[in-house]
């Protein structure tokens, strides 16, 4: 079984819980006292991940760090239908890779602002917020034109991919870092769509959406 080194309030850990829930994969959790214990910087944990970051998984003897890398691994291994990370579609894989990097950008901005506000990290919060707004503007425009073209998801596919899962958590938690989403209505609608994916789960600060149209 997969072991997830987890922190409940981490959006990057939530990504993995989210995808594993949607894929119907079982896992066990090793809770890490990220705050205030800084257990991710402890000696024992640095042996698992020398970067001292969450999340990390162990699966069949493989130890893997980095949320985006783990999403790629989980989707490649456990998605029987092969839609979350379609290995036979190079163009789509390229797009997914591009947006996984974008998700890292969101972590570096929106999540940093949240760490500053909620966990008292010593970051330049104004720069982090401005960076988040810059990314959100780009994504909102992308999603708005997607809707005009009949595309519901971040990548050019008729179904969600791990790019949606990678971007979702720190967008949804952005208000906790003082980054309102009022000016990004297309992002807000996309968030509703992500919440309506079968198997969706919540975390502290992420609310469910209403029922979608009956199939």
């Amino acid at each position: 079984m997969i072991t997830l080194y987890d922190y409940e309030l981490s959006g990057n850990c939530y990504k993995l819980r989210l995808l594993m829930g949607m894929l119907g994969v079982d896992w066990t959790t090793v809770p890490i006292d990220f705050y205030p214990g800084r257990e991710h910087k402890s000696e024992w944990f640095l042996k698992i991940n020398p970067l001292g970051q969450l999340p990390v998984i162990e699966d069949d003897g493989l130890v893997l760090r980095d949320a985006q890398a783990i999403l790629v691994y989980l989707a490649s291994k456990y998605d029987a239908v092969g839609t979350w990370y379609p290995r036979d579609n190079p163009a789509l894989l390229g797009e997914i890779g591009q947006w996984l990097a974008f998700a890292d950008g969101i972590t570096g901005t929106a999540s940093a602002a949240r760490l500053h506000d909620a966990l008292f990290y010593d970051f330049d919060v104004e720069a982090a917020r401005a960076g988040a707004h810059r990314l959100f503007r780009i994504l909102d425009e992308h999603l708005w034109f997607g809707e005009q073209e009949g595309r519901d998801w971040i990548c050019s596919a008729s179904h969600p991919t791990i790019a949606d899962i990678a971007c979702f958590p720190y967008i949804m938690l952005s208000e906790e870092g003082g980054v309102p989403r009022q000016d990004y209505p297309a992002i807000r609608r996309w968030c509703d769509r992500v919440k309506r994916i079968k198997g969706f789960t919540v975390m502290s600060g992420v609310f469910p959406a209403g029922p979608a149209k009956a199939a």
């Binding site: 809707e147 989403r181 009022q182 209505p185 807000r188 609608r189 509703d192 959406a209 209403g210 029922p211 979608a212 149209k213």
Partner: peptide
């Protein structure tokens, strides 16, 4: 305060 496309099925738009 919003556009028609801002009000899809069962959504709540945040206007000001």
């Amino acid at each position: 305060v919003a556009a028609t496309y801002d009000l899809p099925f069962r959504h709540v738009f945040h206007a000001q």
